[in-house]
Design a protein around this nucleic acid. Structure first.
Length: 681
RNA sequence: GCCAGUUUAGCUCAGUGGUAGAGCAACGGUUUUGUAAACCGUCGGUCGUCGGUUCAAAUCCGACAACUGGCUCCA
């Protein structure tokens, strides 16, 4: 169950990735390592606060860190800051950078800091009637003994460990980008603050380059290209949000990827299986997904006989009644024991009624992952150690009820097709199997020209054992050591992150960077030594005892939805020929019969070789035909006019590469067929 | 789910209370062509949905939906 097939949403073109917030406090050492650009941005956050205070003096500031592409400052303010306010705020900021005030560091005692915060003097231009409440709270999180400092520019004083640039004038160029809401300290229970995002650079030129890059990213947006090229559609009215329809051109991508996966998996000794999209409730109780993850699954389909239906209505009415008459805690007239007993009785009745309701009929759930089904396939026959490793592969369709605010084009959806497989193996086989999975990842990276990738190896924490993680300290250690050893031996680029494993074992998330440098978490690879046991999966070992296999969950191509979303942006829609929905377009100059017959023959020959070819034999001028084909991002254009007919040639033109000259018909066809077969970049 | 913004023709967008517009696409015709756009015409919209204010609503107000940017979540 690679459950994190769709983890972190992608960094959006216009957006700045917030860094982990206060929860993981930066140490002073970390802060000292801030780059010059980060100092500029962090300083700019102070300038932003200065400007906001001049306009709205009662603003309360929380955190204002630099982030990947800029900075933000969280502010609590009755006035709702809108993008229309940016100009006004930027004008005030400009005044501050023009003034070229120094950033002055002031070291104070904790008592002094608390007093100033209470006087509303922190994150402020002067003393105020209301305390600087967030700063006061922040002070509490500064460990005893760590020095406390302010930074002061002009009248603005902020609680801040720095470091900063020397003067406000060192911020060469800045711009506010967007405003969003954010919970204080990222906690849903805390108040919502307005988060003002901006970016800042050493100089104007660098800032302009940044905005140019953003524009380029927008041009490559998979939603835009997907619509332009007729790849997919999302029909909210009739189909529903987050459930993409694959149009014919997009289906070509889907099927080419499946072909690639099937070929690679066949060569690597996988066998294919197919499973239904639904399963009984019992399946997900056994796997441990219910009831904890019910929120992320579509609600169950309930099958009730008519008699059961009546019974259910009756029971629900009773339940409501019981709920309404919940005993009140009566301190005056009853003993504590009596109160507890009443409450206990009430709970028991509720439990009993709920239990009776649940026992009625049958409930089926749409699957949110494929592994339980695959586990049942493992269990369908008695297994011997000779059957292992057993590699079950399926492009499985899953449904996850993602929250409405989380949906994002193809990147975060509710129906998804996963390049899933589960490898059941013995401990001795694990390292080789795991290595082979990694090799498959690397093979794919090469095919797609992904030069930059990183594997994120998530391990458990001792404290989480028995809570967040299954309580198998030895197995954790053993599998983590095996994974680490394979990663090191294979020379794979990875980082290790403690305390982020899945509950059933260590996992590896694969991050890749597209051609324009956007990061995507595309795939995951997980070790599972817990769930097979829950399903009672066993094999008979050499020594005639039953043992539980290890399971590797892997999905190197992630889901079709996210992977194709990534590929669209990576290639900007200019797919390599093997993926291109329209591989070849035959364009005629003129429409006299001998020419058309020649063009038709070429087209038929390509089609006979399974090349996706389209004819454009109409009366448009050749310039127009070429413009249309270029806009449609057709990989190869074969231009055919009188000259070509006479010589038995075709004139080859490649998308966005221009004319490649004329060559004999047979040669051109052979080249196209070979390029497709070899999946040339 | 939370905060904010957006929603006008298939697409990109104009239209700030008085008879809904442009370009591209589509369709019909004319044009017969050598590497990124020939010409003429036609079709196309209950201005996201529902309700309110007004003599009059794309335009003002409210609710809902979807999308987008963040937040939270992501077994």
């Amino acid at each position: 169950m690679p459950e994190e097939i769709q983890p972190t949403p992608v960094a959006s073109p216009s957006q700045l990735q917030p860094q982990p917030e206060a929860a993981q406090r930066k140490t002073l050492d970390d802060r000292a390592k801030m780059t010059e650009l980060e100092r500029i941005r962090h300083s700019c956050a102070h300038v932003l606060a200065t400007a906001i205070l001049r306009l709205w003096p009662d603003a309360q500031f929380a955190y204002g860190p630099p982030v990947e592409n800029g900075f933000y400052y969280d502010v609590e303010l009755a006035h709702r800051i809108a993008p229309e306010d940016f100009e006004k705020i930027e004008a005030e900021m400009k005044k501050e950078t023009k003034a070229n005030n120094t950033f002055e560091k002031i070291v104070v005692t904790r008592e002094q800091a608390i007093a100033d915060a209470q006087a509303g003097r922190l994150g402020a231009l002067g003393a105020r009637p209301v305390a600087s409440k967030f700063k006061l709270d922040l002070l509490n999180s500064i460990p005893e003994g760590e020095p406390i400092s302010y930074y002061k520019n002009g009248d603005f004083i902020d609680l801040c460990a720095g470091p900063h640039v020397m003067r406000t004038g060192n911020i060469g160029a800045f711009k506010l980008t967007t405003v969003a809401s954010a919970y204080y300290k990222g906690d849903e229970k805390n108040p919502q603050l307005q988060r003002i995002y901006g970016t800042a650079f050493k100089n104007k030129t660098e800032m302009e380059a940044y905005f140019t890059m953003i524009e380029e990213a927008k041009r490559r947006d998979h939603r835009k290209i997907g619509a332009e090229m007729g790849l997919f559609a999302i029909d909210n009215d009739y189909v529903g949000p987050g459930m993409p329809l694959w149009l014919p051109n997009g289906t070509v991508l889907v099927e080419e990827l499946e072909k690639l996966a099937k070929e690679s998996e066949f060569q690597a000794g996988y066998v294919r299986v197919r499973t239904p999209h639904l399963a009984r409730e019992k399946m997900y109780r056994t796997s441990g997904h219910l009831p904890y993850y019910a929120d992320s699954m579509f609600p169950p389909i309930e099958l009730l006989e008519p008699a059961d239906r009546d019974k259910k209505v009756e029971l629900q009415a009773k339940l409501e009644e019981v709920q309404k008459n919940a005993p009140q805690f009566d301190e005056e007239n009853a003993s504590e024991e009596a109160n507890v007993a009443a409450s206990r009785e009430h709970n028991a009745r509720m439990y009993e009624l709920n239990h009776q309701i649940n026992a009625l009929g049958e409930r089926y759930y749409l699957k949110a992952m494929n592994c339980p089904h695959h586990h049942r396939i493992f269990a369908a026959e008695p297994r011997s150690y000779r059957d292992l490793p057993l590699r079950l592969a399926e492009y499985g369709t899953c449904y996850r009820y993602e929250q409405s605010g989380e949906l994002f084009g193809l990147m975060r959806v509710r129906s998804l097709n996963m390049n899933d497989a589960h490898i059941y193996c013995t401990e001795e086989q694990f390292a080789d199997e795991f290595r082979a999975v990694n090799e498959m990842y690397l093979k794919y990276f090469k095919i797609f020209g992904l030069e930059k990738y990183q594997m994120r190896f998530s391990t458990h924490s001792a404290e989480g054992l028995g809570k967040k993680y299954v309580n198998e300290p030895e197995l954790w250690k053993k599998t983590e050591d095996m994974v680490r050893r394979v990663l090191v031996e294979s020379g794979i680029n990875f980082v290790e992150v403690a305390n982020e494993a899945a509950f059933y074992g260590p996992k590896i998330d694969v991050q890749v960077w597209s051609a324009i440098g956007r990061e995507f978490t595309i795939a995951t690879n997980q070790v599972d030594f817990a769930v097979p046991a829950k399903f009672g999966l066993v094999y008979k070992d050499r020594d005639n005892t039953l043992k539980t296999p290890l399971c590797i969950h892997r999905a190197p191509l992630g889901t079709h939805e996210r992977f194709i979303g990534f590929l669209i942006e990576h290639y900007a829609g200019n797919f390599p020929i093997w993926l291109a929905p329209e591989q070849v377009r035959v364009l005629t100059i003129g429409d006299d019969e001998p020419l058309l017959a020649y063009a038709r023959a070429i087209s038929s020959e390509l089609r006979a070789n399974f090349v996706r070819v389209v004819n454009d034999f109409g009366s448009d001028p050749i310039k127009a035909k070429i413009a249309n084909a270029e806009h449609a991002k057709v990989h190869t254009m074969l231009v055919i006019g009188g000259r070509d007919l006479e010589a038995g040639n075709v004139s080859v033109r490649l998308h966005s590469k221009g004319p490649q000259g004329a060559k004999p018909k047979a040669e051109a066809v052979a080249e196209i067929v070979a390029a497709i077969r070899e999946r040339r970049a």
